[in-house]
């Protein structure tokens, strides 16, 4: 198994880089689109809806193909890592947008009204009152999405990136030792997912600190 390590480590680097990069993209996209879905302006809502449905309604594999292989034909060219981060991030962000929208709409209208009665501006109300409450509800589903994202990174071999799964497949082809290679692969993905789960758990506990949601507000 020691012979596998260099290849697996280089795959691990690619997988971790893509996961972290795409998480950052997804974070921004999810908040932007999730809040835009609740905008008072119809075109803004429409734009967000198009983005969300486009990315949720087509598979990440196909999106990778279009961004990496087709966009260069119209002069838009990303290197493979950028294309991978962008596509996986926007794909996860489309699901995340619904998480953001759902959590924001779950905040009772009365909270907006109380903020309004205290003369907070809409931006202040959102930032100080609504988001801090909504974010707590976003963390567990965001953790799920992040782990989904981790597993989705296995698709990037389509665009010539040597992620963990790709390296494992290559090792398998070279050594024909499917069992040990896949056992190692399983172990690494599991550890990565557990690390992420732990991180999101910590975040959730930190954000929820001191709050008690029992009863009337």
């Amino acid at each position: 198994m020691v012979d596998y390590l260099p290849a697996m480590l280089s795959g691990l680097k690619v997988t971790v880089l893509l996961t972290l990069g795409a998480m950052a993209v997804a974070f921004v996209a999810a908040f932007a689109a999730g809040m835009a879905r609740l905008s008072r302006r119809a075109p803004v809502r429409g734009l967000a809806l198009v983005y969300i449905e486009l990315f949720r309604g087509t598979s990440a594999l196909v999106q990778l193909f279009w961004v990496y292989f087709a966009l260069p034909l119209v002069g838009i060219r990303f290197d493979a890592v950028t294309a991978g981060i962008l596509v996986l991030g926007l794909n996860t962000g489309a699901y995340g947008a619904e998480v953001v929208r759902g959590a924001l709409s779950a905040i009772p209208r009365e909270q907006y009204q109380a903020a309004w009665a205290l003369n907070l501006s809409p931006a202040q109300a959102l930032w100080r009152v609504i988001l801090p409450q909504a974010v707590i509800a976003m963390v567990p589903p965001a953790g799920n999405l992040a782990i989904e994202l981790l597993k989705n990174t296995a698709l990037v071999s389509l665009i010539t990136l040597g992620d963990l799964t790709f390296q494992a497949q290559t090792l398998r082809a070279a050594t024909l030792e499917s069992g040990p290679v896949f056992a190692l692969l399983l172990g690494i993905y599991f550890l990565l997912a557990q690390t992420m789960r732990f991180g999101f758990r910590r975040l959730e506990n930190r954000l929820a600190h001191g709050q008690d949601y029992g009863g009337v507000r």
């Binding site: 009772p108 009365e110 909270q111 009204q113 109380a114 009665a117 205290l118 003369n119 907070l120 202040q124 100080r128 009152v129 801090p132 409450q133 707590i136 001191g210 709050q211 008690d212 949601y213 009337v216 507000r217």
Partner: peptide, 23 residues
Amino acid sequence: FQSFNLFPHMTALKNITLAPVTV
């Protein structure tokens, strides 16, 4: 309000200081 509408993520003190500080 009838239903208080306090901000649940803030202490009593913070609920009261929020508007004077931000507004």
